Deep mutational scan, measured.
Amino acid sequence: MKVIFLKDVKGKGKKGEIKNVPDGYARNFLFKKGLAIEATPANLKELE
């Protein structure tokens, strides 16, 4: 799953980066803790 990092996550990504991460990791950790959001076309446009 492609995500946009909202905060730095040690060993995974830095704020503003767009990366592919495992689906479970994104849903169960990154999204729940507010560390990242899904890289949807709308979210990507908002980032620019």
Rank of each mutant, 00 (worst) to 15 (best):
residue 43 N to R: 10
residue 44 L to W: 07
residue 23 D to Y: 15
residue 20 N to H: 14
residue 4 I to Q: 03
residue 18 I to P: 01
residue 1 M to P: 03
residue 15 K to W: 05
residue 28 N to E: 13
residue 11 G to T: 06
residue 18 I to Q: 04
residue 30 L to P: 01
residue 35 L to M: 08
residue 33 K to W: 15
residue 26 A to M: 07
residue 30 L to Y: 03
residue 33 K to T: 09
residue 3 V to R: 00
residue 46 E to N: 13
residue 22 P to A: 10
residue 44 L to H: 06
residue 14 K to H: 10
residue 43 N to I: 12
residue 6 L to R: 03
residue 42 A to Q: 14
residue 47 L to P: 06
residue 34 G to Y: 08
residue 9 V to D: 01
residue 46 E to Y: 14
residue 47 L to M: 12
residue 21 V to E: 03
residue 47 L to W: 15
residue 20 N to T: 15
residue 1 M to L: 14
residue 2 K to S: 11
residue 44 L to T: 07
residue 12 K to P: 01
residue 44 L to N: 05
residue 33 K to V: 09
residue 3 V to Y: 00
residue 6 L to A: 02
residue 35 L to T: 02
residue 17 E to F: 03
residue 30 L to T: 00
residue 44 L to G: 04
residue 16 G to M: 05
residue 30 L to D: 01
residue 22 P to T: 09
residue 21 V to K: 00
residue 27 R to F: 10
residue 36 A to W: 01
residue 46 E to F: 14
residue 17 E to H: 04
residue 2 K to N: 12
residue 16 G to D: 05
residue 7 K to V: 14
residue 41 P to W: 13
residue 30 L to G: 00
residue 31 F to N: 02
residue 32 K to P: 15
residue 35 L to K: 03
residue 48 E to P: 09
residue 12 K to G: 13
residue 8 D to G: 05
residue 9 V to F: 04
residue 17 E to L: 03
residue 38 E to R: 10
residue 6 L to F: 03
residue 11 G to F: 08
residue 13 G to I: 07
residue 38 E to D: 04
residue 32 K to G: 05
residue 15 K to Q: 10
residue 39 A to I: 06
residue 33 K to P: 02
residue 41 P to L: 13
residue 9 V to P: 01
residue 37 I to T: 06
residue 1 M to Y: 06
residue 46 E to M: 14
residue 13 G to Y: 13
residue 24 G to Q: 12
residue 34 G to L: 08
residue 1 M to N: 03
residue 37 I to D: 02
residue 42 A to Y: 08
residue 31 F to D: 01
residue 27 R to Q: 09
residue 40 T to W: 04
residue 5 F to I: 01
residue 12 K to E: 10
residue 25 Y to I: 07
residue 27 R to W: 11
residue 27 R to V: 11
residue 40 T to S: 10
residue 27 R to E: 07
residue 22 P to W: 07
residue 45 K to W: 10
residue 46 E to V: 14
residue 8 D to T: 13
residue 30 L to F: 02
residue 29 F to P: 01
residue 15 K to P: 05
residue 37 I to M: 12
residue 47 L to F: 14
residue 40 T to I: 07
residue 26 A to D: 04
residue 48 E to K: 10
residue 16 G to W: 10
residue 24 G to H: 14
residue 44 L to Q: 08
residue 20 N to S: 13
residue 37 I to E: 04
residue 27 R to L: 12
residue 28 N to G: 11
residue 10 K to G: 08
residue 45 K to E: 11
residue 41 P to F: 10
residue 6 L to W: 02
residue 37 I to R: 08
residue 3 V to I: 08
residue 47 L to A: 09
residue 4 I to R: 04
residue 3 V to E: 00
residue 26 A to E: 06
residue 9 V to W: 05
residue 9 V to E: 01
residue 10 K to Y: 14
residue 25 Y to S: 03
residue 4 I to M: 09
residue 46 E to W: 15
residue 9 V to Y: 04
residue 1 M to F: 08
residue 14 K to R: 13
residue 26 A to Y: 12
residue 17 E to S: 05
residue 10 K to E: 12
residue 20 N to M: 15
residue 28 N to D: 13
residue 45 K to L: 13
residue 1 M to V: 14
residue 38 E to G: 04
residue 15 K to A: 13
residue 3 V to W: 02
residue 35 L to D: 02
residue 8 D to K: 06
residue 40 T to K: 06
residue 11 G to H: 08
residue 7 K to P: 00
residue 7 K to F: 14
residue 47 L to Q: 10
residue 4 I to F: 08
residue 36 A to Q: 01
residue 31 F to A: 02
residue 43 N to V: 11
residue 34 G to T: 03
residue 3 V to M: 02
residue 7 K to D: 05
residue 6 L to K: 03
residue 34 G to W: 07
residue 20 N to A: 12
residue 4 I to T: 02
residue 46 E to R: 13
residue 48 E to A: 14
residue 48 E to H: 13
residue 10 K to H: 13
residue 41 P to H: 11
residue 45 K to F: 10
residue 33 K to D: 06
residue 27 R to Y: 12
residue 35 L to V: 04
residue 13 G to A: 13
residue 18 I to N: 02
residue 28 N to V: 06
residue 34 G to M: 09
residue 12 K to M: 15
residue 20 N to F: 15
residue 16 G to Q: 03
residue 26 A to S: 04
residue 18 I to R: 02
residue 42 A to W: 08
residue 22 P to F: 07
residue 35 L to Q: 03
residue 25 Y to D: 04
residue 41 P to A: 13
residue 34 G to D: 05
residue 33 K to Y: 15
residue 15 K to V: 09
residue 27 R to D: 03
residue 32 K to H: 08
residue 4 I to P: 00
residue 24 G to L: 14
residue 35 L to N: 01
residue 12 K to W: 15
residue 10 K to L: 13
residue 28 N to T: 08
residue 28 N to A: 09
residue 6 L to Y: 03
residue 1 M to S: 04
residue 17 E to R: 03
residue 47 L to H: 12
residue 36 A to P: 00
residue 22 P to I: 06
residue 21 V to D: 01
residue 20 N to L: 15
residue 24 G to T: 13
residue 39 A to Y: 14
residue 31 F to Y: 05
residue 21 V to L: 05
residue 37 I to S: 04
residue 1 M to W: 06
residue 24 G to K: 12
residue 31 F to I: 13
residue 21 V to F: 09
residue 19 K to R: 12
residue 15 K to G: 04
residue 6 L to P: 00
residue 8 D to P: 05
residue 30 L to H: 00
residue 3 V to F: 01
residue 47 L to R: 09
residue 41 P to Y: 12
residue 35 L to E: 02
residue 17 E to I: 02
residue 4 I to A: 03
residue 6 L to H: 01
residue 13 G to N: 03
residue 16 G to T: 02
residue 14 K to Q: 10
residue 8 D to I: 03
residue 12 K to R: 14
residue 25 Y to K: 04
residue 26 A to N: 02
residue 19 K to W: 08
residue 18 I to T: 06
residue 4 I to D: 01
residue 15 K to N: 04
residue 29 F to Q: 06
residue 2 K to Q: 12
residue 28 N to H: 12
residue 23 D to G: 12
residue 48 E to W: 10
residue 4 I to E: 02
residue 48 E to L: 15
residue 38 E to M: 11
residue 39 A to N: 03
residue 13 G to K: 01
residue 23 D to P: 13
residue 48 E to Y: 12
residue 13 G to Q: 03
residue 35 L to G: 01
residue 45 K to N: 10
residue 26 A to F: 11
residue 19 K to S: 07
residue 43 N to F: 11
residue 1 M to D: 02
residue 5 F to T: 00
residue 28 N to I: 07
residue 11 G to Q: 05
residue 6 L to G: 01
residue 21 V to S: 02
residue 22 P to N: 10
residue 7 K to L: 10
residue 4 I to W: 03
residue 1 M to I: 15
residue 23 D to W: 14
residue 8 D to F: 09
residue 20 N to V: 15
residue 4 I to K: 04
residue 10 K to M: 14
residue 11 G to V: 01
residue 12 K to N: 08
residue 2 K to E: 10
residue 19 K to V: 11
residue 18 I to D: 00
residue 6 L to S: 02
residue 34 G to N: 11
residue 31 F to Q: 02
residue 17 E to A: 05
residue 21 V to P: 00
residue 24 G to D: 15
residue 28 N to L: 11
residue 28 N to K: 11
residue 16 G to K: 03
residue 44 L to I: 12
residue 14 K to V: 11
residue 26 A to W: 08
